[in-house]
């Protein structure tokens, strides 16, 4: 049906969610990754990651407010992906692309992992 479509609304909402995160407003979970703590909103995490979707839809786990990830998960890679969730921007650096891809696989962020794979493939082609 006809309407007024605000084309940047999704981005504006995401921007404000990131502001809420940076001010620790209504954040409801701490993610512990290799001794580093990351505060976040469960709803954003589960909207972006299959792993967090599975955790927070589990009747035994949805109420947890501290989640420790596998000790093999890289804190820098997690930080980059958490920033991506709140900004839609994924920095491309040769030094971090592998760790970002492996962390994306762990978090079941399949589209990001596929994109990293394609980026690595195209880098090899060059």
């Amino acid at each position: 049906d006809s309407c007024i479509q605000f084309t940047r609304h999704a981005g504006d909402v995401l921007f404000n969610l990131n502001r809420l995160r940076s001010r620790d407003i209504l954040t409801d979970v701490t993610i512990l990754v290799d001794h580093q703590r990351f505060r976040a909103h469960k709803t954003v995490l589960m909207a972006c990651s299959g792993l967090f979707y599975a955790i927070f839809t589990d009747q035994l786990k949805f109420n947890l407010n501290l989640i420790s990830l596998d000790p093999d998960v890289d804190a820098e890679g997690f930080g980059i992906l958490l920033d991506f969730m709140y900004t839609s921007r994924l920095p491309l650096r040769d030094s971090s692309i592998m760790v970002v891809m492996n962390t994306a696989i762990y978090l079941q962020m399949d589209h990001v992992a596929d994109t990293c794979r394609r980026y690595l493939q195209s880098s090899e082609d060059i």
Binding site: D1, S2, C3, I4, Q5, F6, R8, D12, R19, R23
Partner: peptide, 20 residues
């Protein structure tokens, strides 16, 4: 015309900006 208005795209900001 069937009385419906056309869909309009609004490219400006849609909501307030939460301060830093």
């Amino acid at each position: 015309r069937d009385g419906r208005l056309p869909t309009v795209k609004e490219a400006g900001r849609s909501i307030h900006e939460i301060p830093r």
